Simulated scan of single mutants.
Amino acid sequence: MGEYDRSPGSGGRATGPPEPVLPPSLRGLLGIVASVAALVVLVLGATYAGDREPGPTDARIFAAVDGVGAPWRHVAVATDFLGEPVGAVLLVTALVTGCLLLRHPRAAVFLVTGSGLTVGTTALLKPVVGRTIHGDNLSFPSGHTAFLTALALMVSLLAAGRLGLGRAAGTSLVCAAGLVAGAVMGWAQVALGSHYATDTLGGCCTALAVLPVSAWLVDRTGDRLALRRAAGPAGPEDERRVDAGGQRLR
């Protein structure tokens, strides 16, 4: 489905609602997931604020995956590249191009907005938490892990909407995709010594907290713009007759 449904008798004007990036059936459960994820980030951030050394859990996990050799180290390096600026831009550009070819511009906006808000949130949290690794390198939460988790969440959300999945199946798909992507990038970051394991958990949970909110904002803004375009040019009198919800009063 494209951004609008059009009927022959409407002169090309949109008659159906735009396709949302956050399926209505998933909003409630994903809202709960986002709240729990935000709480985890808050607890981890408070626990490791100002730390310069790994905690006991981090030390054990690091000892288990440190020093991976070929071919796994090559896999870790390739995975890490996806979170680097060049790799991230290439990945997002490819997905945005696909959305535009499928005539789903709202999904393209969502991919850019969701990625930007997630990475921006990690950048804001790092100096607040103040946890460091290898000297003065801020480490919590992991931006690489947050980015790949966010991308997986967005793609799976769009897939759930296209496939018309129900609440249970859709939420399971989205959460599973996010957790798998977070685990893969988290492993790569710990194996390469770039982050502590709890940093990567914080990055994954940051994405889980931010993405549902990003999707809601994109849908909310897109719906308002669609209503304005569907209504056509409005004069001062018409504008006064539009209520706060964007519906034209009669």
Results as ranks from 00 to 15, higher is better:
Thr122Gln: 12
Thr118Ser: 15
Ile61Thr: 04
Leu39Gly: 09
Val43Lys: 13
Thr118Ile: 14
Leu102Cys: 02
Leu39Ser: 07
Cys99Asp: 10
Gly114Cys: 12
Val65Glu: 01
Ala70Gln: 15
Thr113Glu: 07
Pro56Asn: 03
Ala38Glu: 10
Ala34Val: 11
Val41Ser: 09
Val77Met: 04
Gly116Lys: 04
Gly45Ser: 06
Ile32Lys: 00
Leu42Arg: 10
Tyr48Gln: 11
Leu44Glu: 13
Ala38Tyr: 14
Gly87His: 00
Pro105Asp: 09
Gly28Thr: 11
Ala34Ser: 12
Glu53Val: 10
Ala59Asn: 07
Ala34Lys: 01
Leu91Glu: 02
Ala107Phe: 01
Leu91Pro: 03
Leu102Tyr: 07
Ala94Gly: 08
Ile32Asp: 05
Gly55Pro: 06
Gly31Asn: 08
Arg60Ile: 15
Arg73Tyr: 12
Ala63Met: 03
Gly67Trp: 05
Gly31Gln: 02
Val41Gln: 08
Leu39Pro: 02
Leu29Met: 11
Asp66Ser: 12
Pro54Tyr: 04
Asp51Phe: 13
Glu84Ser: 10
Val96Pro: 00
Gly120Ile: 02
Leu30His: 07
His104Glu: 09
Leu90Lys: 02
Ala94Gln: 05
Leu30Cys: 05
Val109Leu: 15
Gly28Leu: 07
Tyr48Ser: 05
Val41Cys: 11
Ala78Tyr: 01
Val86Phe: 13
Val65Ile: 07
Val41Ala: 10
Arg106Pro: 01
Thr79Ile: 07
Thr47His: 14
Val92Arg: 00
Phe110Pro: 00
Ala78Leu: 09
Ala108Asn: 05
Leu111His: 10
Ile32Thr: 07
Glu84Asn: 06
Ala76His: 00
Arg103Asn: 05
Glu84Met: 06
Val77Thr: 09
Gly83Asn: 01
Leu90Arg: 01
Ala123Asp: 15
Tyr48His: 14
Phe62Trp: 15
Ala76Trp: 00
Arg106His: 12
Ala107Ile: 01
Leu100Lys: 14
Tyr48Val: 12
Leu90Ala: 15
Arg103Val: 03
Arg106Met: 08
Val89Ile: 15
Val119Ile: 15
Ala34Asp: 08
Thr57Lys: 05
His104Ala: 13
Val40Glu: 05
Leu82Cys: 03
Leu100Pro: 01
Asp51His: 11
Ile32Ser: 03
Arg27Ile: 04
Thr93Trp: 13
Thr47Tyr: 14
Gly67Leu: 08
Thr47Gly: 09
Val36Lys: 12
Ser115Leu: 14
Gly83Cys: 09
Leu100Phe: 04
Ala64Leu: 03
Asp80Trp: 06
Ala123Lys: 06
Ala76Gly: 04
Glu53Phe: 15
Arg60Met: 13
Ile32Glu: 04
Glu53Asp: 11
Val77Phe: 05
Asp58Asn: 11
Asp80Tyr: 04
Ala107Asn: 00
Asp80Phe: 05
Asp80Pro: 05
Pro105Glu: 09
Arg73Thr: 12
Thr79Asp: 00
Val68Asn: 00
Ala34Leu: 15
Thr97Val: 13
Val86Glu: 08
Ala34Arg: 03
Ala94Tyr: 07
Gly120Lys: 12
Thr57Tyr: 08
Thr57Met: 10
Arg103Phe: 03
Val43Ser: 05
Gly114Pro: 15
Leu42Met: 10
Gly87Gln: 00
Val77Gly: 01
Glu84Pro: 02
Gly69Lys: 11
Pro56Lys: 07
Gly98Thr: 08
Ala37Phe: 11
Thr97Tyr: 04
Arg60Tyr: 07
Glu53Thr: 14
Pro54Thr: 07
Ala94Asp: 04
